[in-house]
Structures are given as C-alpha cells and as structure tokens.
Design a protein around this nucleic acid. Structure first.
Length: 661
RNA sequence: UGGGGAUUGGUGUAACGGUAGCACGGCUGACUCUGGAUCAGCUAGUCUAGGUUCGAAUCCUAGAUCCCCAGCCA
C-alpha cells in the first residue's frame, strides 16, 4: 500500500439499503422495454443510458410534489437525492404531480415546479428520466381499486360528517367508532357510484378503509380514502367530484410507476403501515408474487392471474429528515402567508427560500446541488447553518463570475494632479481565478467615486484604506495619497482630495535597484470614474428572519420577521455592465415525456427559465441582474433601468474584526 | 398519558464489535494588486447510568432529552 487510493465517498443510509437490495436482487433487473420507457427517444444520450441499463438491478425513484405552492430549498434536497440516486445507480427518476386536492392546487404552480425541477438538472425525460406523471391520470384505476376493496369487505362508504368523524376518533386506548362500518358491500358500491355521479354534496359521505378502529396508530383507525369535492381540477378539469386522499393514492402511484425506493420525509413514517396495508389488501386474492418486483404497472403487461388480476408492485418507502436551514421558514403555509401578506413581493422574491427566489437572487443551480449533496442524508432532525448555503454560492461564483467594480455608497475623490478632461484606459483582469477570461479596459479620470467605508478621517490601527496623509492603491489603476478633505455644513466629508503617483500606473509599485518594490502599500480599494460610471439600483438583502429558528419563541414564525430585510441603494457601476449584463431566457428542455400527452400544461411548449447574469463587485460580493430591469437588460421594468440584486457578500474578515472592537 | 422516530466536536456527517475520521465554522500562520481566493497548522465529540466482552459510538437493560402523529391536507 504505497500509493494513496482515492477514498470512496461514504454511503448514506439510503444508499446502503439500495446496495443491499441490488446485491440480493430484490427488485429484479431492467428489461429492454422497461429501460427506455418514459424517456425522450430522440435524445442520443438517453439511448446510451438505456442500453447501459438493461440487465442492471432496478433503481427507480421519484419526486412527488403537490402543486400547491412553489418549491423550496427543502424540495431541492429531495430532488437532488432522488435524481442523484437514479443517476448513480443507472436507474430512472420520475417527476410526478401529487395532485389529489384541487382545493389547493393551481396550474401556475405546476408550471413553476416544472421550471424549477428542470433548472436544478433533474431531467425527467433525459438519460436517467422515467417521465412526467400526474396522480390525477390514475384516478380511474384508483376508483376501480376502491370498488375492489369494497367488494373484498375492506372498505365502506361512511355517512359521518367531518365533525362526527373527529368526535368519534377516540383516544389512545379508546377506540374510534363508525355506525357505517358494516354497511353491505352492494350498498357501499351503489353509494360510491352516486358520489362519483355528483349526487351527494361535499362532506356528506366518504369512503373509508375497514382496518382497525382501536389501533394505537391513528392512521389505521379506518382512514378516509375518498372525499367529495365539487371542484374543478387544474389537470383533470371537471371530470371528477370525488378525490382520493393522499394516503390512499400515494402507494398506488408508486406501484403503477413501479417505483422501487419511495423516499419521503420522517412524518410519513407512521403512515407506512397504512400504505403497506392498502397494497396487501389489493393483492389479496390476486395472482403472482406479493410484496416486490414488477407487477401490473403502467409499463408492464402482466397476464391476468387470480380473481382480480395479477398482484401489483409494492414499493419500499424510506424516510429521511427534511432539510431545515437556520433563519428561514420552510412550511408552505408560512411561505404562502408571506406572499399573500405582501411581506415579500412574490414566490420568487430573492429573499424567499424558494428555488425560484434563490434563482432570482443569483444562486447558481450548481451551488444548490453542492449544498444538498454536502448536508447529507439521515433520520436525525438537523438544523443546517444557512451560511453553508451561502458558502456554496460563493464557492461556485468565485470561479465563474466576471469581476467588475461598483460603488454602493459613493464618496467623491478628485485627483488634483490629473488634468481636467484627460482619460486613461487601464487593463482590468476579468477573473483572477480564471486566466482564460482575459482582460478588458476600464476608464479612469480626474474625478472618481470610492466607497464611503473606504475612507476615514481618523482611522483606527490597521485601517489599510484611504485616510489623510495615507496612501492606497486603486485597483488596477494608481497609488493615490489623500492630501485634503472638504466637508459640508454638518461636518461630514463630501470630497476627498488626492494626488496620484504616475509611476504606479496599473497599480504596480516601481522596483528599486535591489529589485524589490520601493515602498509598500497595504490596501487596495475599488473605484469608478465619475465621468463614465453608470447608475444602477441595487437591492441589498438581509435575512428574512432575525431568529435562527423563526417561531421558536412565540410559536409564530412571523413574529421573528426582520423588518430590514431589503435595502435599496443608488449605486454607480462600471459602464461595462450596461452593455453586457442581462437576464437571459433559457430553455432547459424542449421535449417532455408525459403520462397525459398533449393535455399536459408541460406539453404546451418548451419550458423557459430566467437566468440572470452574475458578476462579482470586487471587495463587495456577488450581484446579478434582476428582471425588474429595463427591456435592454432582458427585464420587464422601465427602459434604461438597471436593477441588481446582491446575491451574497464576500467574506469580510475586516468587518468582523472592526466590529469586535 | 398511546403510537412512531431520533441522539457522535460549535454545525453537518462517517465508522455496522477492533486506531473515533471527514467537511463546514473558529483560531494561528504563509501568500496576495479583492481585508476575497488559495495553502499549511491548530481547535473540539460518542446523551446518562449500569451490564456483556480481551475490546463497545456500535450489543443488552434502565433512564434522560428532542421531533412527529389524533385533517374529509400532503
């Protein structure tokens, strides 16, 4: 063992389960037919992945969002996990809308979710994609299965109202009750049909599973399978007025899609016995092997066996702890409230922890993926320092973002020994981390602006910036020396007079006879030329909440809102931005394989996504173009207006140190 | 009080009876035309009490603490 082997990445507990399943052959192997279904056949990469898949152990995951809001960073973790597993094991990943409750769901959310999932790179019809599905496309089958369970004596139509069910729920040790539990199957079958036909009002009756009214697990106390809801559905339209409950539907969806590993969050752990019960109940008196392996799924054509047909597929559910970052709220209820209250300007407000918000804020998809990968997967509740997400963003952007100079809070500087009207063109390194990015020119003149923070009349020790009598380097320009200040009536410095050293053009200090620089200048500050600078409206964001865990104190997260989460300043920026920066419209994917064909909102055209250009303002942070900018910047705002978002600051050890003092 | 989960440095996460490791943060220092980046070093941990064992984060017993569940939400 003389040479170092690259350490294999340690597996998380879900990967251990999968590797165990693969070793034992639990889920069988991909067949030729199975391996390609759900994918875009015209994609050559998909074809290659399909060929590679045939014969390998099946790993099929899914991400099942309800379209009742925008996706947030917690969903991003689930997407990365599920898609990442499919890719790592050469399997497939489905996107499935869990659209069982039309009261809360909207088409706008469907579109937003498609955009966000694709933006993150979880391409459901690409090489590792299994297609796009809607639970509502399965309603007919679920209805048939419901009839089957009634016929088997495992379900019944219950005439209790919601309040009555609640009153009769029982307590630990005290069983629930229902007077309708022994209703004859023929009666239930007839009532179910009437429910479907719209003959009964909302809330008047439900279909319930006959399981165990005394179970210590309340999910098993005859849970509701169907409720009446006379409401149009964003995907199914007006076809239904009864809708399946999530608990009844979810395992069936996984079954139909032949999902192997159904990954969800911890709160569904004690629903698992219910899902298992439903599948077992359907498989009772059916043929074929129960419990595992492909059954009567969407893509297989198993021959009918047993009274009710072949056994259906039974996915394995695995639960993990959801992602909770500090200083943010994750519940859709709270996020929706922020939007409806007008606390933020919409689901994609850059302060929101939504994927759309983070994209608009300037976070690259790659950073989100790195972050999600980095936090790991376990069953232990964990609070993730949101600074970790910000670090991931800095890490990506440091390598990729072009540098530019801009002054947020301008202070005027006049170079006394620079002649009026004279302009110099200086070389500016576009990205020191990426020499291939090259150089460009930046204009310099007699009047400049620097950052107010970069000048102090009475500086503390170790203030390596501009101060009376002190020298500083202007980035890529000249060494200047402060020779005087002018103040307004209130005594504030409004203008700094300096001289420049012509021998330091480009920012280099001349070398002495010994080959060493003749003097040392500690500080370098950024600047813009007053005659050339462009104006920009810059939005500076702070955390939306002031508490690590919003709502921990009072129970209401909104009590911890940060009243100063947004500040807007008029900045002066490098004119280069005006010609080069914009919000670009990307088309992440042209074709979409979908269970419901041309009826799907997704099938109505390519999915487009705004992707803002990002830059680093040297010494300040990363910024991106906001769509509130004018049309010339790819936005929808007032013509000529450039609006920038501060994505994240640079690490600032000076601010921390000087703050301590 | 019934049921279901969880507990390893400040934070996140490995180790599956055999040297408690990694990442982030923090602290030093080097380097630097961004007080950025980069590089090097340091820092600090098995919830508690018993038990089994040559050996326990890991197995057993008892306890503590935290999270989830009693929607016709998902």
């Amino acid at each position: 063992m003389s040479h170092a082997e690259p350490a294999p990445r340690s597996l998380n507990f879900i990967e251990h389960v999968i590797e165990g399943d693969n070793a034992s052959g639990k889920w069988g192997a991909w067949t030729r037919q199975d391996a390609a279904s759900g994918q875009d056949a015209s994609n050559p990469d998909a074809h290659a992945a399909t060929e590679a898949r045939i014969g390998k152990p099946r790993v099929h995951t899914r991400f099942p969002p309800e379209p009742n809001g925008y996706l947030h960073v917690g969903h991003a973790k689930s997407i990365c996990l599920n898609f990442g597993l499919a890719r790592a094991y050469g399997g497939k990943f489905n996107l499935r809308f869990d659209d069982t409750n039309p009261a809360k769901e909207e088409r706008e959310y469907i579109q937003a979710i498609l955009r966000d999932v694709l933006w993150l790179g979880a391409d459901w019809s690409g090489p590792f994609g299994g297609g796009l599905y809607y639970s509502s496309d399965y309603f007919e089958r679920m209805y048939e299965w419901t009839r089957e369970l009634i016929r088997k004596g495992k379900a019944y139509v219950c005439g209790l109202t919601a309040d009555e069910v609640s009153q009769r729920r029982g307590k630990p040790g005290v069983p629930a009750t229902s007077p309708f539990r022994d209703r004859p199957a023929e009666d239930s079958l007839r009532l179910l049909e009437e429910m479907r036909d719209g003959k009964h009002p909302d809330g008047s009756m439900t279909v319930r599973a006959r399981i165990d009214l005394g179970s210590p697990n309340f999910n098993l106390r005859d849970p509701v399978m169907y409720r009446i809801l006379h409401q149009a559905h964003p995907h199914a339209g007006g076809k239904w007025c009864i809708y399946p409950m999530y608990d009844w539907a979810h395992g069936l969806e996984d079954s139909l899609e032949e999902i192997t590993h159904s990954i969800c969050t911890l709160e569904f752990e004690d629903h698992r016995p219910l899902y298992d019960w439903f599948i077992d109940a359907i498989n009772e008196a059916r043929g074929g092997a129960k419990g595992s392996g492909p059954g009567a799924g969407l893509h297989s054509q198993g021959s009918a066996k047993g009274e009710f047909g072949p056994a259906i597929h039974h996915a394995q559910q695995i639960e993990f702890a959801k992602l909770i970052p500090t200083y943010t709220v994750m519940s859709k209820r709270n996020l929706l409230k922020l939007v409806q209250d007008g606390t933020v300007k919409g689901w994609d407000d850059p302060r929101m922890p939504t994927i759309a918000g983070m994209r608009r804020r300037g976070y690259p998809a790659e950073s989100l993926r790195d972050f999600c990968l980095g936090v790991g997967v376990t069953k232990a509740d964990s609070l993730i320092d949101v600074g970790r997400l910000e670090n991931a963003v800095r890490h990506t952007l440091n390598r990729s973002a072009p540098r530019v100079m801009g002054v947020l809070r301008p202070l005027k500087v006049v170079i006394d020994n620079w002649s009026e009207g004279k302009t110099d063109e200086l070389d500016f390194v576009i990205n020191p981390e990426d020499p291939s990015a090259g150089k460009r020119k930046v204009p310099f003149g007699r009047e400049l602006f620097i950052e107010q923070d970069d000048f102090m009349e009475n500086p503390p020790r170790k203030f390596f910036r501009l101060a009376p009598g002190q020298e500083v380097r202007l980035r890529w320009a000249y060494i200047i020396k402060c020779v005087g200040v002018e103040k307004d009536a209130a005594g504030s410095v409004v203008l700094v007079r300096c001289t420049h050293d012509p021998a330091t053009r480009g920012g280099d200090i001349p070398l002495g006879p010994d080959g060493k620089p003749v003097r040392k200048v500690q500080g370098t500050i950024h600047w813009v030329s007053a005659a050339h600078a462009a104006r920009a409206r810059v939005r500076l964001f702070d955390r939306l909440f002031t508490a690590e865990e919003p709502g921990k104190r009072t129970g209401n997260a909104l009590d911890d809102l940060n009243p100063r989460s947004l500040e807007e300043v008029e900045a002066l920026v490098d004119p280069w931005l005006v010609k080069n920066a914009k919000v670009r419209t990307r088309t992440p994917m042209e074709t979409v394989h979908c269970s419901s064909g041309a009826d799907s909102p997704a099938a109505k055209g390519p999915i487009t996504c705004p992707e803002p250009d990002r830059v680093q303002f040297e010494r300040l942070g990363y910024f991106c173009v906001d769509p509130d900018s004018g049309p010339e910047f790819g936005g929808t705002g007032q013509a000529g207006m450039l609006v920038l978002n501060r994505t994240v600051t640079l690490k600032d050890t000076w601010a921390r140190e000087s703050g301590k003092a």
